[in-house]
């Protein structure tokens, strides 16, 4: 991994775009406090709406409130993976270090969202379906998604050369992208215990507005939280790369 100081050719090619690392981090640093504040506000509103203001479901009673965490977590689990796959492709094809760094920074967040989705799903399944776990297509494919995240995180740190780990993990990420449509459409392709889509449908959401509102606010809060974590981690990764580069240069000059 090279720091931005080591990439003059990149700066020469794209002098004004956000693809320039220096510019990107300048904007990110300015954006982060606002994003953080907005996340906190959205979470406060979303949690109030979902835990207190919204009515219990006529079938599922109070347990429906798990959905306000479970569904956004599931969306994020897929969204983060797609984002990582796109960033990896961009990074591999155009050798764009910032895109690769974004994919790397996003991975642990995606891993946590996926684990949260599985855990809340299990907690919801116990009272509703009478089982903590069911081997249906959606749960199995999300479990496989969790293993792709784990594989990515393990592979990226398995090499002495960080650039090598980054390249290999990016290729793995692209290979694993075949699982994404399986996760998304498993409830439509296979008749399973898991309920079908109720929000993103061609004929509009089939969910009542009193439940849709907290759901969407929580989804927005999760999304913002993700971007806060992403920018934060990218800042940390850049600092780490700079320290490593400085140490390597010092070692070479001392030799």
């Amino acid at each position: 991994m090279t720091s931005d100081a080591d990439m003059p050719e990149l700066r020469a090619q794209r002098p004004v775009s956000l693809a320039n690392p220096t510019r990107f981090f300048r904007v990110a640093n300015r954006l982060l406090p606002w994003l953080g504040a907005a996340t906190a506000v959205l979470f406060a509103v979303g949690l109030y709406l979902s835990l207190i203001a919204s009515p219990p479901d006529y079938q599922q009673s109070e347990t429906v409130r798990i959905a306000y965490v479970h569904v956004p977590a599931a969306w994020m689990a897929l969204f983060v993976y797609v984002l990582m796959a796109v960033a990896s492709a961009v990074g591999l094809i155009w050798r764009h270090q910032l895109a690769l760094m974004a994919a790397r920074a996003a991975a642990p967040a995606g891993l946590v969202f996926t684990a949260l989705c599985l855990a809340t799903g299990s907690l919801w399944g116990a009272p509703m379906w009478g089982t903590w776990w069911e081997w249906d297509a959606r749960m199995t494919s999300v479990l496989v998604l969790l293993f792709f995240y784990l594989g990515y995180v393990a592979l990226i740190d398995a090499f002495d050369d960080p650039a090598r780990g980054q390249l290999s993990a990016s290729i793995l990420c692209l290979v694993g992208a075949v699982n994404v449509p399986i996760v998304k459409f498993s409830v439509d392709w296979f008749h399973t215990l898991h309920q079908g889509a109720t929000v993103f449908r061609l004929d509009g959401p089939t969910m009542h507005a009193s439940m849709l509102a907290p759901m969407l606010v929580m989804a927005a809060a999760f999304t913002l939280l993700f971007f806060v974590v992403l920018l934060w981690r990218m800042r940390g990764l850049r600092a780490r790369a700079r320290i490593a580069a400085a140490a390597a240069t010092a070692a070479a000059e001392g030799a």
Binding site: F147, F148, L155, F159, D160, G165
Partner: peptide
């Protein structure tokens, strides 16, 4: 072969390989 190529030169590559390919085998 994709997994075997990905882990070339990795620490504990053989173990890592199982984690990488088995999800794809499902």
């Amino acid at each position: 072969t994709v997994g075997g190529a990905l882990i070339l030169g990795a620490r504990r590559g053989g173990l890592l390989l199982v984690l990488l390919v088995v999800p794809l085998y499902v």
